[in-house]
Nucleic acid binder design. Sequence first.
DNA 1: CTGAAAGCGCTTACAG
DNA 2: CTGAAAGCGCTTACAG
Lengths: 330, 330
Amino acid sequence: MTIRDVAQRAGVSKTTVSRVLNGRDELDARTAARVRAVIDELGYVPNARAVAFARGTTHVVAMLLPSLTWPWIGEVVQAAIEAIEDEGYGMLVFTTTQGEESMRRFTEHVSARAFDGLLVVEPEGTLDYITRLHDEGLPVVLIDDRGHEPRFGSVATTNRLGALAAAHHLLGIGRRAPLVISGDPRFGCVQDRLAGFAEGFAAAGRTLDPLHVVEGDFSYESGQAAVHRALEAGLEFDSLFVHNDTMAMAAMTELRRAGLRIPDDVAVVGFDDLPFAAQTDPPLTTVHQPIREMGQVAARALLASFRGTPVPNEPIVLPTSFTVRASTVG
Amino acid sequence: MTIRDVAQRAGVSKTTVSRVLNGRDELDARTAARVRAVIDELGYVPNARAVAFARGTTHVVAMLLPSLTWPWIGEVVQAAIEAIEDEGYGMLVFTTTQGEESMRRFTEHVSARAFDGLLVVEPEGTLDYITRLHDEGLPVVLIDDRGHEPRFGSVATTNRLGALAAAHHLLGIGRRAPLVISGDPRFGCVQDRLAGFAEGFAAAGRTLDPLHVVEGDFSYESGQAAVHRALEAGLEFDSLFVHNDTMAMAAMTELRRAGLRIPDDVAVVGFDDLPFAAQTDPPLTTVHQPIREMGQVAARALLASFRGTPVPNEPIVLPTSFTVRASTVG
DNA sequence: CTGAAAGCGCTTACAG
DNA sequence: CTGAAAGCGCTTACAG
């Protein structure tokens, strides 16, 4: 069934049916009603391929991601999909688990103009390429989990303030000797978290000893190893500020193994507030990242740009919040 | 840039360029080489919208899911995407977190013929609808996590045998009094797991007491509650067979809280083998579901059907395996 | 082996 | 307010 069938049955031209469908031109109310009745009766839905071809627009948004199996990525994508679906768009998902080959394929889809705009959680080392796509006219919004501040639209969060809140909380419960387990220091977000946390302690007249900052890489194993090394080295600490929840969970397991009580001997603060943070043992105090909101806001900004509202050039920054649980306050 | 530009520059017709692009007809090797050279030189990529329109085929596969935030769903989708991308297809993802509204939107995309085939992890209560889509000619493959055995192509796993393996393992390490924490018994997979486990104990001359089967709903909370209730009721057990890892993890936390040692007092076996199962405390012995393989096999079966190989009518069954960790063998 | 032409199902100036 | 016609960029019989 095509627009022709509807037109014939309603006794109008295809042009008129098209107008009813898209409803921006003036048309006689009665004609419109009649056409609409026929559309309903026939259950007609315009062929998406034909519409895309004629309009030069797909009603599809792509999302480029490192992988779907990361802890928080499902949340971002879910939120973005919901926002996208709300406007009748579809979401094409691309991941880069196959490295170069994945990027080659993605590029192919870009060149083929298979979608109208792009949401991206940056796969490592692709920022220049994404920037080029943006410069070439593809609407792009970056969901910035790494503190990039790119030259195009992005959504980020307050890493520095989040870490500051962690510092205040630990100071507030009387902890004076924190150990920091950081993520990879090449990331802007890691720098921001280190800076914010140091700032909080500095404001209380306490300088953080650089020896009390151990480097992890956001993985479970690295969280475990960090605590292990710190204990072996005989470092003294009454609290942990860990740059993500996964490492924090690992750290807690390791602390318990060493016979330390949480929070009595060591209070632990994470970063992310993933769903499992409420279910660790003990439940984890952590800096809440507005993951869902970031996905949603990014999607909405992209959709708005299709309607002519340009994506802001500076990052859209969404605030973290602070979630207190039993890992710091028994 | 369009196919016209390439044709002009190569001094051939658009038909010829199209033939080079799709390469199924015979053509002069030299002509083909010349056209290919021009294509490379110009970096020409056919417009996906035009191709889709002309061919009546989109090179896009859709995946319908309850949600992207479930523990194992990212793995399935990731595996499916990789298989899809390998053949140059794109993956359109739809979730049903918005209930009826989501389904209405999805239906719209179906009617608009926005994709060539469908992969589905069934959102509750949609099986009849999916069956109808299949009957109307849409290629569909179900990734069956619930023991459905639908009337169309599906990929499933050996729930019964997996549970049987769990029973054998527990018997093998001398456990005689298991407590089972099940999922929602309306699911076929839950029935299969109950049956397989009971079978294993029956074969060893031991009948399972129905009182020792407590019902959960696959959620963390329900796992915790189940153990709590069992202990309150004074049930005696030396082991736990839990129908998924999430409840198993919750159960372990609750056991520890009650002062019981794992595995000394209670050995614990889960089901799924999610990534976190290796990182619980202690690491969880569990029935490994071939989640990635299911996604991959389902995607490949769907792609094969586009090439004329029909999707088999009976379920494609992939075997579970059994992963032994410290929660049963200290 | 190659090309001219029709056609895929819409949208959108343009004319009335 | 409405319609005839061109056009979007390919593919695919059909003819040679």
